[in-house]
Design a protein around this nucleic acid. Sequence first.
DNA 1: CAGTGAGCGAGCTTCCGCTTGACTT
Length: 534
Amino acid sequence: MKLFIVESPTKAKTIAKYLGNDWVVKATLGHIKDLPENELGIDLETLEPRYVWLKGKRKILDSIKRLAKRAKKIYIGTDPDREGEAIAYFIKEELSKINRYLYRAIFYEVTKYAILKAVETSGDINLNLVHAQFARRILDRLIGYRLSPFLWRDLGGRGLSVGRVQSPALRLIVERERQIQGFKRRKYYYLKVEFEKNGVSFFAVLNQRFEKASNAEPYLKKLKDVMFVVKQIAKNTQKEVPPKPFNTVSLQAEGSRKLGLSVDNVQKIAQRLYEDGHITYPRTDSYRINKQKAEEFMSFIEKAYGKEYVGKLRSYRDKPLAQGAHECIRPTNLNKKPRGELDLKLWHLITSRTLASLSSDALREKTIVKLYPLTEKDLEFVAEGLKTLFDGWTKLYTTEVKEKPLPYLEEGELLKPKRAYIEEMQTEPPPRYTEGTLVKTLERLGIGRPSTYATIVKTLKSRGYVIVDRGYLKPTEIAFRVVDYLTERFPKLMDYTFTKDMEDHLDYVEEGKEDWKLVVIESYRKVLNESNKG
DNA sequence: CAGTGAGCGAGCTTCCGCTTGACTT
């Protein structure tokens, strides 16, 4: 008997099918050890961490150990990234006393070929990766557990918290709120003319903006009973490329927007869909799609919508921070629909998005018509039209593009306006973040990971830092004080590039070029605003 | 002698990231 160990039980089931009868596949359910929760767990002299059993994991490892005793060979197939390597390290620590035929198997997709190849080419644990995880973990712990007490002491709030991820996230929300508070709405005015021809009405706007309505009025007077001339008609067609398939962040953003749920809820439903076998792994930062599946989906598009709706297989460049084996979030089987109203809705969203991503470009024709009043040849009015020539992917996935119809027009043509008027407009402040836009912004800044985006939002809520107001995140009084305090005291931590700097150093650790303890010391010193003190 | 207050010690909130089922209401 041979033993194969992974993190996810769903993955374990799949892999068990690929391997033969003499294999047993077991899952750890993620990390098995971590720093203790109720103390720092780090020796401040040596930086040595004290990793302890996570709740319930000793039992899981015990059952794996029993199998390990009888196994001829053991393959550790945890995820091919920093966290997965650390899990592998702790598994090895437990099993190496029992069985010396231990190997690290690495695969980047869950297919039979990739699994067999991983077994064949298996090697040993990469300690550099493990050390990078130690550095990441310990730095996060130091920041969280050593800085939070400053807030308790100086702001007098029980349970306030500081974190490498949550604090910059909170800063985003507070900064946006300040922009909104400081925003002065300004009114401005446009001169507009409405025309109607062949039952189609359309608008032309003077290409000039007025600060006061009174400045526009003399122009309006001149237009009374004046005919307009079509001076120029320019058309151009625009290609609209399909959206990418979903990753965790885009699913959370789109799902919460379209279904009116919190990102946490969207993630929960996605997890259920995954466990029931309806979709691929829901915690991923990749847009990559399995080639075979993509071809299957494309032939479905051809059958259901026609050949002209089939697009091409696009390759997306994953962000440099993207780690791991997973592909995009997509349906596993187009014919297998989930039960349950919300499950079905989210599955439909995922399915139509996936199909749209493999569909053809939409073609739109934009028309720009320039007109002038007969008596005022120097004034230029502009009318715009937008027409869909071919709907392409938008047939499969809803978009919010509005058509702007124009009647047939010819250059030199005379038109009689239906009415002319001054339209009052107002500058608007930027909107507050929604859960979805916050998570998107964090992803863009490289802050947080697919498994934690939903939790970040939850933490900010449960600390009393933000409340949800009509779907928008509104910071509380204490949030302002926390952000001001941290910005004053620990500016480096509040810098949005802190995580990126850390990641750069961790890359060096992973390449064996830098000592992990030095990375922790250097980064933590920067946070504390210290330069050379021990 | 009773009440007051300084001083001390014990107990206490907190991080990010990986993964679900086993709990209770």
